[in-house]
Design a protein around this nucleic acid. Structure first.
Lengths: 252, 252
DNA sequence: GCCTTAGTTTGACCTGGATCAAGCACATGC
DNA sequence: GCATGTGCTTGATCCAGGTCAAACTAAGGC
């Protein structure tokens, strides 16, 4: 009990200015003084545990959330059980941007593992951005980045085959973890095969078979949730490969 | 020649405050005075024609574009000919939001038919939003709306079958045209079957067959690019239908 | 320990939609 | 007029990946 309290305390108390994520998150490009003003509106909850909700679809939108440690998935529940996983969010990533317009959350967000989350009440953030131009600019950039990311996913779901989708997923995880100072070749997947499949528009069985195939081809090693990329270049080569094929086929 | 000049002039001169699209576009919720300030930065070009570019992938991002009349498609070209159509944009819709972050356009935009376009230099718009809170709010809303729309598309591409995709497309067109004061049941598609297929992640042949099937089922009438929805409710019923099926199957 | 439950893997089979291949309809040019 | 091109439709075939089914493997719970 005591130990858990200590951990919580450590996790919670990091101010924005001391946070290692400040280059990825909102404080980027802000002066020390402005970071302190931002810091004033951030609410830091105690750590959440696997399955806990940040918000649920249908709830009124009040805040944006930033992952500080751990990971979160967002998904759009469709009446009666079905759902589409929209994203897996790593430390420094902002969640809830899609709800600004309607002021109602259209998707749900729950943590995949014990995670620390910062909450940013949106109305206060909005007031702040009106007085700090660089913060406003950063908000535009973050919103725009989200659109760019969604665009990539549209391309993935619209044009890529199963193999390319999983390769894209692995490369994306690898890069994002690397940005956060973790190993780009050796990591833990906090989501299930089912969730990966759902996210990539594939059946669980297909994901499982692909992991096996990639393993057989010497591209990676898998032990349950632990992944080791043995040949990252080989995996990257899978992306765009079929487009080259496509072109070859058409021009012949 | 003279006639064309007259048309151009008429099209170009509409100020934001007199524009019928102001409820859909940025001016929403602004005071008359603020609309005039916005108006000052808007550049109105002469009408563009089918195939003209608003911008190309790889170009430096400088402006956002708003469709005033006509329609525009955006697409992400992938090396050597292949492309993913990202969207079809109707009057009042903003284009280019995904390029704010990187300051480089990742996609291209070209007009599908003779169209009038408003250009908004982003740096000036950004300055303006810093001094007009309601404009800033509207910008956040527009960016957020785009994310919400992309999310819907992800769901469509990730979970829906061919029939549901075309139904969703038709309903979306119908609603958006209706919002703009046009008939929700009787409209002209400015894009080709090929482009529709590309957008929906389907082959041209599939799109064509679906139009035929919908026609046989009495849901609509098609004559080349002209579409008439005979049973809009029937088409809407196709959406989410398979999810119900899915649930029925699983719970039995 | 042993039972239960949930996640994962593997195999066998099936199908929706892609691909291939014609034929058709309507422009546009000469 | 006829030739050429471009987009659309229709039919026949094929296959990637979904679905179904079963076995395997942790990880709790008691």
């Amino acid at each position: 009990m005591t130990e858990q309290k200590v951990i919580s305390f450590e996790t919670i108390r990091v101010a924005c200015k001391n946070c290692t994520l400040s280059t990825l998150c909102l404080p980027m490009g802000l002066t020390t003084e402005d970071v302190e003003r931002l810091d004033d509106i951030v609410r830091r909850s105690k750590p959440l545990h696997r399955g806990d909700y940040l918000f649920r679809s249908g709830e009124t939108f009040r805040s944006l959330y930033v992952v500080k440690t751990g990971s979160v998935k967002t998904y759009a529940p469709s009446e009666e059980g079905g759902e589409q996983v929209l994203g897996f969010h790593l430390p420094g990533e902002i969640i809830g941007l899609d709800a600004i317009e309607t002021e109602v959350h259209a998707c749900s967000a729950r943590v995949l593992e014990t995670s620390a989350i910062c909450e940013l009440p949106f109305s206060r953030l909005e007031q702040l951005t009106a007085t700090i131009p660089s913060l406003q600019h950063q908000m535009y950039r973050l919103l725009s980045k989200e659109i760019g990311h969604d665009t990539e996913m549209l391309l993935l779901l619209g044009k890529k085959n199963a193999e390319e989708r999983l390769a894209a997923f692995l490369i994306s995880m690898s890069r994002r973890l690397h940005q956060r100072g973790l190993s780009p070749t050796d990591f833990h997947l906090s989501m299930s095969r089912h969730e990966i499949g759902n996210y990539l528009g594939l059946a669980v069985e297909t994901v499982s078979r692909l992991f096996t195939r990639f393993h057989e081809e010497g591209l990676l090693k898998v032990d349950r949730k632990h992944v080791q990329l043995l040949d990252p270049a080989g995996i990257e080569a899978i992306l765009g490969q079929s487009l080259a094929d496509d072109h070859r086929a058409r021009s012949s």
